[in-house]
Write a protein that binds this DNA or RNA. Structure first.
Lengths: 189, 189
DNA sequence: GTCTATAGTAGGATAGAC
DNA sequence: GTCTATCCTACTATAGAC
């Protein structure tokens, strides 16, 4: 029952629709209908459809960037850092799984300036991840497989959590974290 | 230099554009420009934009269904079956990575009949995968973690290969298969 | 097999009343 | 804060000439 602004309500409703059909296939009329108002009324609260998308995506990307910076700067070994990254993804997914659909699938529809900003954040995030894994390999904590395959495999799973988590009804967040860490780091056989 | 029909050329060009921007954001004018002709000319070869999408998606889904059926019916243990599934995904990705973008992200834009057909194939595929993992756990080949987490984690990585593989220039298919099997099954630490 | 022309519809967004 | 009315543009698709 927190006093959510109308703008925030619109953005939340939009994130749900973007998740279902993608940014391009959702019309302002669809969004208005979901809010129970007419399309023209939306423009009293937001400037454009594009503004909704960039708010959803940039806020989330900054959240990941902040989280990753803390992990990079903490004084832990590679394995612990990767565990923190898994935690970060699970926490963000629990808080805003709808928005993650746009982050994953609709970032290419950002306009020039935000697109560049987003791509830089994503690149830096992946680079930080890669460096953590590399250091883990150097220090013989992590097996010497292809770095890209290990990073890609872990990130793919974490980035797709938003699709899967809402379908799991009886799973506790801490259990999910624990099992995810086990599966991703220690394997299934 | 195989004698590819104009229709096949159009579908391949469409798959590339759908991968870049998604089905809804690609216009028939975009597609025509990519083919070096006018939009109206496309309709001499295809019936509708929808037909292009369903051809891309249904063909791929049937390919996965056929592959999975062979794996289910083969006489191997769970670990070997999962290795075959990894092979299947890598093979399909190498052959048609563009089309996989539509399979993963634009299936919801299929029209009623094909949507139902697709959803049944996807459901059966996941169910087959789940049963293989379950049997592996029962026979103590696979660790007794949450089945859904193991299936989801593996499938997420395999389904996202299409995004990642084209960026890796110097990786051999067999090396990829080998390392992917190691990472997904045996873990990184 | 491709073109021009165009029909018919639906999209994002604005103006101005209430 | 929401409405009706509407502008302008862009979309899919068709008709018919070449």
């Amino acid at each position: 029952m927190k006093p959510e602004s109308r703008k925030e309500e619109i953005i939340k409703a939009a994130a749900i629709l973007f998740k279902e059909k993608g940014y391009s296939a959702v019309t302002m009329r669809d969004l208005a209908k979901a809010m129970g108002i007419k399309a023209a009324s939306l423009y009293n609260h937001i400037q454009s459809k594009q503004e909704i998308l960039s708010t959803i995506i940039i806020d989330l990307a900054e959240e990941f960037t902040t989280g990753m910076n803390q992990i990079v700067n903490c004084d832990k070994n590679a394995t612990k850092k990767i565990e923190h990254i898994i935690d970060l993804h699970i926490d963000v997914t629990l808080r805003n799984s709808d928005g993650l659909a746009s982050l994953n699938n609709d970032w290419m529809h950002l306009e020039e300036k935000n697109l560049q900003y987003f791509e830089k954040m994503r690149h830096d995030y992946e680079e930080n991840f890669r460096n953590i894994v590399k250091k883990g390999v150097d220090q013989e904590e992590i097996k010497p497989f292809n770095i890209e395959i290990m990073v890609f495999s872990t990130l793919s799973t974490l980035r797709t959590l938003y699709l899967w988590y809402p379908k799991q009804k009886n799973i506790d967040a801490d259990l999910l974290k624990h099992d995810m860490i086990s599966v991703l780091l220690k394997g299934v056989i």
